[in-house]
Simulated assay, not measured.
Amino acid sequence: MSKLFTEVTLGQIKLKNKVVMAPMTRSRSIGNIPGDLVAEYYEQRSEAGLIITEGTSPSPNGLGYARIPGIFSKEQIAGWKKVTDRVHAKGSKIFIQLMHTGRIGHPANLPLGGVILAPSAVLAKGQMWTDKEGMKDHPTPKEMTTAEILAARDEYVQASKNAIEAGFDGVELHAANGYLMEQFLHPSSNKRTDEYGGSIEKRIKFVTDTAAAVASAIGKDKVGIRLSPYGAFNDLGPHEDTHEEYGLLAEKLNEIGIVYIHLVDHSSMGAPKVEPATVKKIREAFKRTLILSGGYDRARAEADLDSGAADLIAFGKPFLSNPDLVTKLEKGLPLAPVDQTTLYTPDAKGYTDYPVTQHSVPVV
C-alpha cells in the first residue's frame, strides 16, 4: 500500500498526504507584496498535504532579489492572508519560508534604507538580476554588529508572529542555499571571532538562538527549518566541518523541539551529493519529522517512506508545471515540462497558466 498518499500528523496538524510542495522563488510579488496572482498560484497547488511558500523576507534588509515577498508590513500580511485562506479552503496546510538573503542581494532590489548585511564583510562571487539596472555584481556586505544580529533575530520573531496573524500553520526558517542563516554556519562567509563565529558551536549560535526565540513566540510545533549540507549555492560549498557541524545543529534543534527539519539534496542539479552518513546522523539526532527533498519521483519517494528514511517528501520543480502533481503521481500520468524562461518573470505566463489534466480529481 502506498504511504505517499495517506494522512499523517505534523505536530498538531493533520496533513491529507505526505507530499510537500517545496519552497521555490517565483518573483511575482510586485512591490514585495503577494497579490491575487500569488494566491491563485498556491491555491492551484493545494493538492499537496503541506505547502511551503517561496522565500519571504522578515526584513527590508533581506529583500535581496527582485519582486520577492516580505512579511514585515501590514500590506504583506493582508496579501498572505488571501493565500492562506484559499489554500485552507482546499484542505491543504501551509508554512511560510522565512528567507533573509544576507549578502546575496543588491541595493537596487532593496527598499529605501535597506542594507546588505552579512556575518562578515566577505564578497559572494556572482551576479543577480535587478529590474532597475539589469545584471549586477554582488556588493561586499556590511559586517553585522552584535546589535544588528540581535535585531535580525527579533525580525524573524516578529515575522513569525505576523505569519500566524496571516493564517499560516507555521514557519520554515531558511538556513540553506547560501542565505543569511547559512552564511553564519559556513566558515568561508563567517570570519567572526566573537560569540557568533570561530568554532562550530559559535557558528550555529545565530541559527539556534533564532529557532529557540521563534519557537518560544509561536510554539515549537509551528517551526521547521531547511538545511542544505553539502549544498553549493551562492558561493558556499562543503567544508571540512560539514558532517560534525550539521550533526551538532540537529542535536540542538532537537533540544529546542521544533517540528521538522527539511533536508535538501541538490545533487540532481549538479551540487555534491549529501553524504549518507550525515543524513543518518541528522536522522538519529533529530527525533521529530524529517522532510527530504531533491530530485524525487514517486518510486524513490515511496522507497524512502517505506524504509523510514523520511517522514514526508518534498517535490519542487514538478509542482511548477503540474498544479495537480499529487493526482498525476497517484494515477501515473505524464508530467508537463517546466518552461525555464518564465521562472522569475513578473506575470501569469509560466506561473498560473499551466493546465490541469482533465482526468484529475482534486484530492481534498
Rank of each mutant, 00 (worst) to 15 (best):
I104E: 00
T140A: 09
Y344W: 14
V259G: 07
G197Q: 15
G295C: 14
M135D: 09
E201N: 11
P362K: 08
P58M: 05
T146S: 03
F319C: 12
E201R: 15
R298H: 12
G219N: 04
P355C: 09
A176I: 02
A89G: 03
Y296L: 11
A211M: 02
D265Y: 02
G231N: 07
V87E: 03
A108S: 02
E75M: 10
S307G: 08
H266M: 12
E284K: 11
S268M: 07
S228C: 07
R192P: 13
P272Q: 05
G237R: 01
E43C: 07
Y196G: 10
Y260K: 12
L123A: 10
S321K: 13
P276Q: 07
I258C: 06
R153E: 07
G64T: 10
S228V: 02
L236A: 04
E251G: 02
R203E: 09
G308E: 15
G102H: 05
V214M: 04
H266N: 14
A301I: 09
L112C: 00
K132D: 06
T84W: 05
A217H: 06
H239E: 06
M99I: 04
A211D: 00
I225W: 00
A301D: 05
Q44R: 14
M21F: 10
W129L: 13
H88N: 04
G11H: 12
Y354K: 05
E302K: 15
M24C: 05
A152G: 00
A285N: 15
I13G: 14
E244M: 12
G257I: 01
S46E: 03
E195T: 14
P229L: 01
S57V: 11
T101L: 05
L180G: 08
K287G: 13
T25K: 06
E172V: 05
I52M: 12
E240P: 01
L110S: 07
S57L: 04
V83A: 06
V8S: 14
G224H: 03
T193A: 15
L248A: 05
W80A: 06
A310Y: 02
K136P: 00
V223R: 01
K280C: 03
D304T: 08
E7D: 11
L333A: 10
G247I: 01
H186R: 10
L10E: 06
E284A: 13
K14C: 00
L329R: 08
N32W: 06
D339Q: 15
E255H: 10
A285R: 05
A121D: 13
T341D: 15
V38S: 03
F184I: 11
E40N: 03
G113E: 14
R226H: 06
R283W: 08
K220R: 15
K161G: 04
V8K: 10
A232P: 07
A271G: 02
I30R: 09
A309Q: 12
V115P: 00
D306A: 15
E275V: 10
D137Y: 08
K74R: 11
G178Q: 02
T210M: 04
D297I: 12
E47R: 00
V259H: 09
I104S: 00
G91Q: 08
S199D: 11
I96Y: 01
T345C: 01
S360A: 15
D306I: 10
F315N: 07
M24P: 10
I256N: 04
K287N: 14
H186W: 12
F72W: 15
